[in-house]
Design a protein around this nucleic acid. Structure first.
Length: 643
DNA sequence: GGGGGACACCTTTTT
DNA sequence: GGTGTCCCCC
């Protein structure tokens, strides 16, 4: 991989370019990651200090992947910074409180935001407000797109007469965060974007990082663009993207912006990677067909460097169980000859779709890993425990207090809020009176113990008096919470939940401060199923398509490609086209064997659909695939006589 | 004010 | 199978 002979001419041109700013348009499977890594190594060889290279990705997974492929000197860890926009920005904020005007803020995640907005909704119950989730999503869209509220509303399909409810909620939310020193994911970027607009700041950052590389440029949203724009005069940009793989529109990304790259950065060159090394031509034929059917212009026609192979298989099933059975059966059969589970990848549109497949794998004992589902830190019981750690890190983290207090029998929202207010007021008082304020909270909790029949004071005291080493603190907290949690979760898989804490403790060991650990759990959640599989490498991947971008496997199953499911009904054209790109990403993951399946009766080849919903495979020329119906759907087609 | 039961409506996708 | 929401009883 190090010698230039392993790159083709297109890749080499990108790797060795001397242009200040570069945009590489790289179709699926054209060696995008290889090129980024190659560019990185090339820069280092040409004398650019490793620490001057900043490599930005959109998912943690991609950051990790790239980091592992950049070699440091003599096998040492490379000094190249490879991280997501968010974790890079968060580190800047933490390390420069004066510049970013935030002193140890508490980072809150989406669940916290929703909890908070649920509370807001209750206090405005008469107004019949939109769901907390919708309020949160709208606010986030507003921040990420930088649009005026009216236009963002149009984008999100919000009625004009409802808009004031959304903007009022946003206002409440922003005020709440400011008064409590909270920041959310969007604030992390926004804070950096605002300060980096000052030339002195941008210049200082440019001094540290001379080369900024951005992966998946098409997913960059306007907020992130502000950061890139500010850096552009001071750094060399190397951006890689593919408009056909833009699948983060819901986060405010607009792939049209990469078309405007050269007008944005006049001294930029645009290079193309068009030769696909991953897939057989048959797989690309179906993928190309899908894109051609789009009303949008992608100017893309992938060519297979590898040549011909076998046609993709299109199958339909009665229900999701027979579909899952087919996937499992095919994999087991292949394992007999290949002796390798990891040749297989199952791609799902949503975590929900993964369930039937996973349960089939479990019953057949097929070693697998589920990626993109719920994060371990998203689990209720983990959040309960983390609430105590959050209080430790930031004594007046109201959301953490509310969560913790409401665990206890007899304490609901109202009582929890009362207790919190009393403590906060008491602390203020003792500051006002100039008392020794070292431990006012501790004293007050001790005082409260006398009247505490619910039991909340005891674990809290253990927590507040514990060691400041994350793993020791966590140990103390778990110790104190074990019994009460066993009771709370007695009918709710307590044994399975309890096991998770072992992993959390291992993770805590890696951090020096509680603050760092609490941050990490928001920005870098660890996925439960992945942790369990640590060490095992030969696994079938069940993965959401969004998480699978950049990955490949010899044999891929794209399941639940069904009318009314993928795409879901009722999407705007813009949204539906994004779904088309999602499917495109899925299809182009396959190297040799592609199985497209759907679990429903009645798929028709030539567009004479039964439902009114859009369906991407309508009109698919049957010669592009091997099409098989399940026996139940067409009894005659399935007759098999055994001898 | 808390809690349990019934109910609907799910599920996008990531930081 | 899971979770948010509403309603009614304690």
């Amino acid at each position: 991989m190090d010698s230039n002979s392993s790159f083709n001419a297109e890749q080499l041109a990108a790797i060795e370019t001397t242009a200040k700013h570069v945009l590489v348009l790289a179709g699926a499977g054209t060696g995008k990651t290889t090129t980024i890594v190659g560019r990185c190594n090339h820069l280092i060889r040409s004398g650019v200090p490793e620490r001057e290279i900043l490599l930005i990705t959109f998912t943690r997974r991609a950051a990790h992947e790239i980091r592992s492929r950049i070699r440091g000197p003599e096998g040492k860890r490379s000094l190249v910074t490879a991280s997501t926009f968010h974790s890079w920005a968060m580190r800047l904020i933490r390390n420069n409180p004066n510049v970013f005007k935030l002193e140890s803020p508490s980072l809150i995640d989406r669940d916290d935001v929703i909890t908070l907005l649920q509370r807001y909704r209750k206090t405005h119950a008469s107004q019949n407000l939109p769901k907390a989730r919708d309020l949160a999503d709208f606010h986030s869209l507003l921040v990420n797109t930088r649009l005026p509220a009216e236009e963002a509303a149009k984008l999100a399909g919000i009625d004009e007469d409802k808009l004031s409810q959304y903007t009022e909620a946003s206002k409440f939310y922003v005020d709440f965060k400011r008064s409590r020193n909270y920041i959310d994911y969007d604030d992390v970027l926004e804070r950096v974007a605002e300060e980096i607009a000052r030339p002195a700041i941008a210049k200082a950052i440019g001094k540290r990082f001379s080369h900024v590389m951005i992966d998946e440029m098409q997913d960059t949203n306007p907020l992130q663009y502000l950061i890139v724009d500010a850096l552009a005069p001071h750094v060399n940009l190397f951006c890689v993207g593919d408009d056909a793989q833009s699948i983060y529109g819901f986060r405010g990304a607009d792939f049209e912006s990469i078309h405007a790259f050269t007008s944005r950065y006049p001294d930029a060159v645009v290079l193309k990677l068009q030769e696909n090394f991953r897939s057989t031509q048959e797989i690309l034929d179906v993928s190309n067909w899908l894109l051609e059917r789009s009303p949008l212009e992608y100017d893309k026609e992938l060519r297979a460097a590898r040549g011909a192979g076998q046609k993709p298989i299109l199958r339909e099933f009665e229900d999701q169980w027979s579909q899952a059975d087919y996937v499992a059966e095919t994999i087991v059969t292949s394992f007999c000859t290949e002796q390798r589970w990891a040749n297989n990848m199952v791609l799902v549109r949503s975590g929900y779709s993964a369930r039937a497949v996973e349960s089939e794998f479990l019953s057949r004992k097929i070693p697998h890993v589920l990626i993109g589902g719920q994060s371990l830190f998203g689990a209720k019981h983990v959040k309960d425990v983390m609430a105590l750690l959050r209080i430790y890190a930031n004594r007046w983290d109201e959301l953490a207090w509310m969560r913790y207090l409401q665990l206890w029998k007899g304490i609901g929202e109202v009582t929890a809020e009362r207790i919190f207010r009393q403590l906060a007021l008491g602390a203020e008082d003792s500051v006002g009176r100039g008392r020794n304020t070292e431990t006012p909270l501790l004293d007050m909790v001790r005082d409260a113990k006398a009247s505490d029949s619910a039991g909340w004071t005891e674990p809290l005291l253990r927590c507040l008096t514990a060691s400041s080493k994350p793993d020791e603190l966590l140990g103390a907290v778990l110790d104190a919470m074990e019994k009460p949690m066993a009771k709370i979760y007695r009918n709710d898989h307590w044994d399975a939940r309890r096991r998770d804490f072992t992993y959390i403790r291992q993770l805590a060991k890696k951090h020096r401060t509680v603050h760092a650990f609490v941050d990490e759990y928001s920005l870098n959640p660890v996925y439960e199923k992945q942790l369990e599989k640590k060490g095992e490498t030969d696994l079938v991947k069940i993965i959401t398509i969004h998480s699978a971008k950049g990955l490949e496997a010899q044999r891929c199953f794209v399941v639940d490609v069904a009318r009314g499911t993928f795409p879901q009904p009722g999407l705007t054209e813009k949204e539906a086209e994004e779904e088309r790109r999602v499917l495109y990403v899925a299809l182009t993951r396959a190297a040799d064997e592609l199985h497209i399946t759907r679990a429903e009766r009645g798929w028709t080849a030539s567009g004479s659909s039964k439902g009114d919903e859009a369906y991407f495979l309508d009109g698919l020329p049957l010669e592009l695939v091997a099409y098989v119906t399940e026996p139940e759907s067409d009894p005659d087609a399935g007759i098999e006589i055994r001898f």
